[in-house]
Computed example of a mutant assay.
Amino acid sequence: MNITLDELQAFVAVVDTGSITAAAQQLDLTISAASRTLGRLESKLKTTLLRRTTRRLELTEEGRVFLQDARAIIASVDSAEEQMAARRERPVGRLRVDAATPFMLHVIVPLVPGYRERFPHVELELNSNEGIIDLLERRTDVAIRIGHLKDSTLHSKPIGSSRVRILASPDYLKTHGPPKNVDDLAKRSLLGFSQPESLNVWPIAGPDNAPLHITPTIWSSSGETLRQLALAGAGVVCLSDFMTGNDRREGRLVQVLPRLTEDSRQPISAVYYRNTAISSRIVSFVDYLVDAVRGTEFAR
């Protein structure tokens, strides 16, 4: 049957205004277009909804019954549109956010109270995965990714960038001595990533003047695990400022070979699938995150 909303609105308008001419004016249609729309509706229903006389239009019994349903359908659509408009102005519902454990712990978690205060109707679901996930498979609305993006199927918005530094604890350096050059560094216990291998390229020139590709003594897939190992004095590590800023300021970690270290930064982006319309929940969270980190150490 495939009755359209336009046909229902035309029928109700004719009833409410009392004529096809007035209904056409209300709907911004020509009289012939309004008449054809009403005719299509009656044809689809295989019944007469209105009796046309020279003086007026009268509802048939079938028309009176159908009018109630038509009004209910139009009201339901109007209500749905109003709810969507309200959601755009006041985000509502569950928002699933994914980020690697370090970013989740050191950046997102401290911002949650402020975000919830501003957007109390958004239910946050925070998940951590160390690798790149399929957003659809994991039912994720927005993910935070660190590094250069390759997936062209995703929308992305830059959050900031974070410098990476070579670090060790004061106790480790006291016991083993601070390395004086790259050759010294290679003799230390190096803490590195089991994946991705690109994170084991450190921002310091190796023997061939290219960035140093280290072979870890201790491996982990988690940057937070490597941070904890460095704090415990297990070796030298290379990590982003967003997770080690407080450690450096409070003296728990010390930068190693700062004069030889290049200013290397990792871009940080929020990613989400390309949709015809991005939900207000995603917009509210990403914009809040961008505003919160603006001017901070890792956003520069």
Score class of each variant (00 low, 15 high):
45 L>T: 02
175 T>D: 12
240 S>L: 01
36 R>H: 14
95 L>M: 05
156 S>A: 15
6 D>W: 10
172 Y>K: 13
75 A>H: 13
90 R>G: 01
130 E>D: 10
240 S>H: 02
48 T>M: 05
264 S>G: 07
234 A>M: 13
78 D>K: 10
117 E>Q: 15
62 E>M: 11
152 S>C: 06
133 I>W: 02
101 T>K: 14
197 E>Q: 14
28 D>L: 11
181 N>F: 01
299 A>F: 10
238 C>I: 06
66 F>M: 07
215 T>N: 11
15 V>S: 07
177 G>Q: 00
44 K>G: 04
120 P>K: 04
147 G>S: 11
276 T>K: 13
278 I>F: 02
270 A>S: 13
99 A>H: 11
285 F>Y: 15
179 P>T: 00
29 L>G: 13
240 S>I: 00
162 S>F: 08
174 K>P: 00
79 S>G: 08
255 Q>G: 03
83 Q>P: 03
90 R>A: 08
196 P>A: 01
245 G>K: 11
266 Q>F: 14
295 G>S: 10
24 A>W: 06
24 A>K: 10
298 F>C: 07
259 R>W: 03
67 L>T: 10
171 D>L: 12
221 S>I: 13
104 M>G: 12
188 R>K: 15
74 I>T: 00
23 A>V: 00
183 D>V: 06
37 T>F: 03
179 P>Y: 01
129 N>P: 07
271 V>F: 04
179 P>I: 00
168 A>L: 12
68 Q>W: 03
102 P>Y: 14
284 S>P: 10
297 E>W: 06
185 L>H: 01
29 L>I: 08
278 I>P: 00
45 L>E: 02
155 H>D: 13
204 I>T: 01
31 I>C: 10
272 Y>S: 13
226 L>T: 07
174 K>Y: 00
215 T>E: 10
41 L>I: 00
50 L>W: 07
113 P>T: 14
50 L>H: 06
159 I>P: 06
121 H>D: 14
92 V>K: 13
94 R>D: 11
24 A>V: 07
29 L>W: 12
80 A>Q: 15
2 N>V: 07
72 A>G: 12
6 D>K: 15
159 I>M: 09
118 R>L: 14
149 L>D: 01
17 T>Y: 10
268 I>Y: 03
253 L>F: 05
93 G>N: 05
108 I>W: 04
239 L>C: 03
20 I>T: 02
128 S>L: 12
159 I>Y: 04
84 M>N: 13
82 E>F: 11
95 L>A: 05
294 R>V: 06
105 L>A: 14
257 L>Y: 02
248 R>K: 09
104 M>N: 13
69 D>G: 09
73 I>C: 03
240 S>P: 00
288 Y>P: 04
12 V>E: 05
141 D>H: 10
274 R>C: 10
46 K>N: 15
239 L>Q: 03
94 R>C: 05
145 R>I: 14
72 A>R: 15
39 G>V: 11
